[in-house]
Design a protein around this nucleic acid. Sequence first.
DNA 1: AAGCCTTTCAACCGCCAACGT
DNA 2: GACGTTGGCGGTTGAAAGGCT
Length: 334
Amino acid sequence: MGRGRAPCCAKVGLNRGSWTPQEDMRLIAYIQKHGHANWRALPKQAGLLRCGKSCRLRWINYLRPDLKRGNFTADEEETIIKLHGLLGNKWSKIAACLPGRTDNEIKNVWNTHLKKKVAQREQKKAGATKNDAEASGDAGTPLTSSSASSSTTTNNSSGGSDAGQQCGTSKKPDMVDISAFEPEHIDISDMLVDAPTGAFPAPQPMPPSPCSSSSLTTCIGGMEEEMLDLPVIDIEPEIWSIIDGDSADVPDVSGASHGDATVPRTANAASVSEAEEANDWWLENLEKELGLRGPTGETQAQSDLLDQMGFAGPLGNTEGDPVSTYFETGPTNC
DNA sequence: AAGCCTTTCAACCGCCAACGT
DNA sequence: GACGTTGGCGGTTGAAAGGCT
């Protein structure tokens, strides 16, 4: 643990709270082009007045192209309940089994809906099986002892650190075998493979720089370079120094200088096309919502985007900002 | 219609593990 | 091996939305 850690946004005058459509666009554009090899440096290079942590969170939980949005299906809820029984509050691991869902989302759903649901179910079950319990040999380990209460109690001391393991291949000792509770066994491995692949491509760790594909880059064209390079936001240079804790120069963010270096290398050749498909699909929707596609053509689109990005005056015409509209409609269209 | 209460969810905080030097 | 840096995780918070009285 480093001690010299720079203070987070609150202390250095960075933006906090809700993200604006402009910030979203900026983040999206930057990551699409350069990837997110270094979250700490990202906001600086993208011209965002946010801390890297905030950017990461926003991307992971909201802007990522492979996110499924909208209500959880009954199946998903059941899956969460089951996995929570196995894993406890290991939201990230649970999320790994639910393509398109984030740990934050799952955590929220659990705390708002599922916890109660499980509690109610358990109550019913307790009432119904009260008499049976004594007779049955395995004398049922109560589900709620882990699932319903573990979220309120503090961490199950994380211990296991089953890093690399996904979807509860290791059952924690204090976790209850929920299969005894549920009518049917659940094959966790299925969940990994069962990702709805139809309209929704399997999530990629991070799509390789999709700039080679059409989409946003095409529509924005050369403007994107400017968007990323120009000091559009009136940022006091000292702020970056404060953030960095040094006086290092703001690196040149033009593609040539560091483009490839910051592009994640998680994707192998085989997955590149998949990832590009995913991105194209996502960007298509985004572009439509942003008005970057359609009869008005690219020139208008660029001009609109410039407006939205704050290049050409205030955001007078947002009419419910485009990014918000996009997400209200929902990228998955599921 | 207004005020209050509850629910929802995006965002923040602090901690920890992994990694690099 | 020690130390610093970064990414990631889980818990918590607070604003907004919705429902109720």
